[in-house]
């Protein structure tokens, strides 16, 4: 299976290549990708250099253009697609069907991957994207069990990529608007969930309080591991309970299911985290690369350090081993 690794900066890109990535995915410095964070991402020239560096090392570059085009501003996305193709991107990762149509008709030879943001998770949806736009690969939403993934793989005519490690969203990828209810911005449209401009932290005695757009969304006791300041990972008072209403601050880790995913016919494993630093990229990529190449009994030992990098310093296999009805 291929190892698909994140890069938010050229330095992280180089770390990913060095640590053993088969492909690195990245985006431009604007709202055309779902990690539109301050100081992050690539200029056109940085992308061109990254692609060249990757090719020199036998590593592919995938460019994420995985937000939905704003009416009246479609040119921003079309230009980004033009520039990604011109830079030599080995694939573009798209969510908006109109952008898929533009790329497949303008650049019929360009490899097209369907982003997790497109939220395609059944045979008919995937078949439509393959037949209409020539999609070669689909990144599956993190909502399916391993047997469901295996069933899909048997019945679709494209490669499947699944998230293996990193941040975990509520199970409505590409459809989640929670962030926009409070901040007016969402990952689907502006490429940013709970934008940093709306986040504040304050110390309250030994506690750390996180606020989003003026609303208190969490309070962490002294030395309690923290999470991202997103609404889905906020702690709320509901009836007589205080707790996580949507999901706990926890990261995805499905490396225990590596053999099952391989048997299921999965082509590629994706690491989440373009917003993370190059140290995260280097450590996670090298650990997963070592685990991929290790015999099953030696695998866990290769991954022991990763929980410390995780949100809330905990991991879960999430829906991959769904234990709820």
């Amino acid at each position: 299976m291929e190892l698909i690794c994140p890069a938010g900066t050229p330095a992280a890109f180089r770390e990913a290549v060095e640590a053993g990535a088969d492909a690195v995915y990245c985006g431009f410095r604007d709202e055309t990708n779902a990690r539109n964070f301050p100081g992050l991402n690539f200029t056109r020239e940085e992308l061109r250099q990254a692609v060249a560096h990757g090719h020199a090392q036998g590593v592919h570059t995938y460019v994420a253009l995985n937000t939905f085009m704003r009416a009246g501003h479609e040119d921003l996305w079309y230009r980004a697609a033009d520039d990604a193709v011109a830079a030599g991107a080995d694939a573009v990762i798209l969510a908006d069907m109109a952008l898929m149509d533009y790329v497949s008709s303008t650049y019929p030879d360009q490899r097209l991957h369907v982003s997790v943001q497109a939220s395609a998770s059944n045979v008919d949806a995937i078949a439509l994207l393959v037949e209409s736009f020539g999609a070669k690969r689909l990144v599956l939403p993190r909502v399916l069990t391993v047997p469901e993934i295996a069933n899909l793989a048997r019945n679709v005519d494209c490669e499947l990529e699944v998230f293996a490690f990193g941040g975990l969203c509520v199970m409505a990828e590409g459809r989640c608007s929670l962030s926009s209810y409070v901040t007016g911005q969402s990952p689907n449209m502006q490429g940013v969930c709970s934008p940093a401009s709306h986040v504040r932290y304050r110390e309250d005695g030994p506690d750390m309080v996180s606020e989003l757009a003026g609303f208190t969304i969490n309070r962490f006791g002294k030395d309690e591991p923290a999470g991202y300041p997103t609404l889905c990972k906020g702690r709320f008072h509901i009836a007589d309970d205080d707790g996580y209403a949507f999901e706990d601050p926890v990261s995805l880790d499905v490396m225990e299911h590596l053999d099952a995913l391989r048997s299921a016919g999965v082509t590629a494993l994706k690491i989440e985290g373009r917003q993370r630093g190059k140290a995260y990229v280097a450590q996670v990529v090298s650990s997963l690369r070592a685990a991929l190449e290790a015999p099953k009994e030696a695998r866990a030992q290769k991954l022991t350090q990763l929980h410390r990098l995780s949100e809330g310093q905990r991991t879960t296999a999430g829906a991959y081993e769904k234990k709820w009805r």
Partner: peptide, 20 residues
């Protein structure tokens, strides 16, 4: 850039305030 800022933040080893 030898350690990951988010990971250090999650572990509560550093605190950040003001304009995020």
């Amino acid at each position: 850039g030898r350690i990951d800022g988010d990971a250090v933040f999650f572990s509560r080893s550093l605190s950040v305030t003001g304009d995020m």
